[in-house]
Protein backbone atom coordinates (compact mmCIF):
# COMPACT_ATOMS: atom_id res chain seq x y z
CA UNK A 1 0.00 0.00 0.00
CA UNK A 2 1.30 3.42 -0.91
CA UNK A 3 2.38 5.60 1.95
CA UNK A 4 0.63 8.90 2.53
CA UNK A 5 2.49 12.17 2.77
CA UNK A 6 1.36 14.28 5.73
CA UNK A 7 2.17 17.93 6.32
CA UNK A 8 1.53 19.07 9.85
CA UNK A 9 2.81 21.15 12.76
CA UNK A 10 4.32 19.40 15.76
CA UNK A 11 5.12 21.37 18.88
CA UNK A 12 5.10 24.57 16.84
CA UNK A 13 7.48 23.34 14.13
CA UNK A 14 6.42 22.49 10.56
CA UNK A 15 6.83 18.77 9.96
CA UNK A 16 6.31 16.28 7.15
CA UNK A 17 6.20 12.53 7.33
CA UNK A 18 5.13 9.43 5.46
CA UNK A 19 2.75 6.94 6.98
CA UNK A 20 0.55 4.00 6.12
CA UNK A 21 -3.11 5.02 5.73
CA UNK A 22 -4.05 2.80 8.69
CA UNK A 23 -1.18 3.87 10.94
CA UNK A 24 -2.07 5.51 14.24
CA UNK A 25 -0.74 8.93 15.16
CA UNK A 26 1.00 7.27 18.10
CA UNK A 27 2.87 4.89 15.81
CA UNK A 28 3.83 7.79 13.53
CA UNK A 29 5.10 9.81 16.50
CA UNK A 30 7.07 6.92 17.94
CA UNK A 31 8.23 5.62 14.56
CA UNK A 32 9.10 7.97 11.68
CA UNK A 33 8.95 11.11 13.84
CA UNK A 34 11.14 9.68 16.60
CA UNK A 35 9.07 11.22 19.38
CA UNK A 36 8.94 8.35 21.87
CA UNK A 37 7.77 10.48 24.80
CA UNK A 38 4.19 9.46 24.02
CA UNK A 39 3.77 5.92 25.35
CA UNK A 40 1.59 2.99 24.36
CA UNK A 41 0.05 1.43 27.45
CA UNK A 42 -3.00 -0.11 25.84
CA UNK A 43 -3.61 0.96 22.23
CA UNK A 44 -7.33 1.20 22.96
CA UNK A 45 -7.68 4.70 24.40
CA UNK A 46 -8.08 3.52 27.98
CA UNK A 47 -4.80 4.46 29.67
CA UNK A 48 -4.00 7.93 28.35
CA UNK A 49 -0.24 7.35 28.21
CA UNK A 50 -0.27 8.47 24.57
CA UNK A 51 -2.15 11.73 25.24
CA UNK A 52 -1.41 14.57 22.81
CA UNK A 53 -3.26 17.68 21.74
CA UNK A 54 -4.79 18.12 18.29
CA UNK A 55 -5.45 21.79 17.61
CA UNK A 56 -5.48 22.23 21.37
CA UNK A 57 -7.91 19.40 22.05
CA UNK A 58 -6.78 16.50 24.24
CA UNK A 59 -6.81 13.18 22.35
CA UNK A 60 -5.41 9.69 22.66
CA UNK A 61 -2.92 9.46 19.80
CA UNK A 62 -3.46 5.68 19.64
CA UNK A 63 -7.06 6.32 18.56
CA UNK A 64 -6.17 8.91 15.93
CA UNK A 65 -5.01 8.11 12.41
CA UNK A 66 -1.70 9.67 11.50
CA UNK A 67 -3.23 11.05 8.29
CA UNK A 68 -5.61 13.10 10.41
CA UNK A 69 -2.65 15.27 11.42
CA UNK A 70 -2.70 16.84 7.94
CA UNK A 71 -2.88 20.63 8.33
CA UNK A 72 -3.39 20.37 12.10
CA UNK A 73 -1.34 21.41 15.10
CA UNK A 74 -0.07 18.56 17.23
CA UNK A 75 1.25 19.04 20.77
CA UNK A 76 3.25 16.29 22.50
CA UNK A 77 5.15 15.94 25.77
CA UNK A 78 8.33 16.92 23.92
CA UNK A 79 6.81 20.37 23.38
CA UNK A 80 5.95 21.14 26.99
CA UNK A 81 9.28 22.58 28.06
CA UNK A 82 10.63 25.66 26.31
CA UNK A 83 14.24 24.70 25.69
CA UNK A 84 15.71 23.92 29.09
CA UNK A 85 12.91 25.81 30.85
CA UNK A 86 10.44 23.29 32.21
CA UNK A 87 6.71 23.97 32.12
CA UNK A 88 5.42 24.79 35.64
CA UNK A 89 3.59 21.45 35.70
CA UNK A 90 6.81 19.57 34.92
CA UNK A 91 8.65 21.46 37.63
CA UNK A 92 5.89 20.87 40.15
CA UNK A 93 5.72 17.16 39.38
CA UNK A 94 9.44 16.94 40.19
CA UNK A 95 9.04 18.92 43.41
CA UNK A 96 6.10 16.84 44.60
CA UNK A 97 7.55 13.52 43.53
CA UNK A 98 4.32 13.09 41.57
CA UNK A 99 5.79 10.25 39.54
CA UNK A 100 7.30 6.91 40.38
CA UNK A 101 8.02 4.76 37.35
CA UNK A 102 7.18 7.72 35.11
CA UNK A 103 5.60 5.83 32.19
CA UNK A 104 2.23 7.56 32.60
CA UNK A 105 3.83 10.94 33.33
CA UNK A 106 4.03 12.30 29.75
CA UNK A 107 0.34 11.62 29.17
CA UNK A 108 -0.66 12.97 32.56
CA UNK A 109 1.31 16.18 31.96
CA UNK A 110 -0.16 16.72 28.50
CA UNK A 111 -3.66 16.14 29.90
CA UNK A 112 -3.08 18.40 32.91
CA UNK A 113 -1.77 21.19 30.70
CA UNK A 114 -4.90 20.90 28.53
CA UNK A 115 -7.02 21.12 31.69
CA UNK A 116 -5.34 24.26 32.98
CA UNK A 117 -5.67 25.95 29.60
CA UNK A 118 -9.39 25.29 29.71
CA UNK A 119 -9.93 25.75 33.43
CA UNK A 120 -7.21 27.66 35.29
CA UNK A 121 -8.92 27.19 38.66
CA UNK A 122 -10.09 23.58 38.85
CA UNK A 123 -11.42 21.95 42.01
CA UNK A 124 -9.94 18.68 43.22
CA UNK A 125 -12.98 16.89 41.81
CA UNK A 126 -12.54 18.55 38.43
CA UNK A 127 -8.87 17.54 38.34
CA UNK A 128 -9.76 13.97 39.29
CA UNK A 129 -12.44 13.64 36.61
CA UNK A 130 -10.30 15.33 33.93
CA UNK A 131 -7.43 12.96 34.67
CA UNK A 132 -9.71 9.91 34.92
CA UNK A 133 -8.53 9.00 31.42
CA UNK A 134 -4.92 8.71 32.52
CA UNK A 135 -4.13 5.53 34.39
CA UNK A 136 -1.32 5.61 36.91
CA UNK A 137 -0.58 2.40 38.77
CA UNK A 138 2.24 3.67 41.00
CA UNK A 139 1.20 6.82 42.80
CA UNK A 140 -2.42 6.34 43.82
CA UNK A 141 -2.90 9.75 42.13
CA UNK A 142 -2.52 11.71 45.39
CA UNK A 143 0.63 13.67 44.54
CA UNK A 144 -0.43 14.07 40.89
CA UNK A 145 -3.65 15.81 41.94
CA UNK A 146 -1.82 17.97 44.49
CA UNK A 147 0.83 18.95 41.95
CA UNK A 148 -1.81 19.97 39.39
CA UNK A 149 -3.79 22.00 41.94
CA UNK A 150 -0.68 23.74 43.22
CA UNK A 151 0.56 24.52 39.70
CA UNK A 152 -2.83 26.00 38.86
CA UNK A 153 -2.62 28.22 41.94
CA UNK A 154 0.94 29.30 41.07
CA UNK A 155 0.00 30.06 37.48
CA UNK A 156 -3.02 32.09 38.56
CA UNK A 157 -0.80 34.13 40.88
CA UNK A 158 1.74 34.65 38.11
CA UNK A 159 -0.89 35.63 35.53
Amino acid sequence: MAKVHVTTTINGEPEEFLCEPHQSMLDALRGPLGLTGSKEGCGTGDCGACSITLDGRLVCSCLMLAVEAEGKKIGTIEGLAQGDHLHPLQQKFLEWGALQCGICTPGVLVAAKALLEKNPDPTETEVRFWLAGNLCRCTGYDKIVRAVLETAADMRRAA
Partner: peptide, 13 residues
Protein backbone atom coordinates in the same frame (compact mmCIF):
# COMPACT_ATOMS: atom_id res chain seq x y z
CA UNK B 1 13.28 13.32 37.02
CA UNK B 2 13.92 15.75 34.19
CA UNK B 3 14.13 12.91 31.67
CA UNK B 4 10.83 11.53 32.89
CA UNK B 5 8.81 14.75 32.78
CA UNK B 6 10.08 15.65 29.31
CA UNK B 7 9.48 12.30 27.63
CA UNK B 8 13.17 11.60 27.16
CA UNK B 9 13.50 8.68 29.55
CA UNK B 10 14.13 5.52 27.56
CA UNK B 11 11.75 2.69 28.44
CA UNK B 12 11.95 -0.76 26.94
CA UNK B 13 9.77 -0.07 23.90
Amino acid sequence: GADKVTGRACYAA
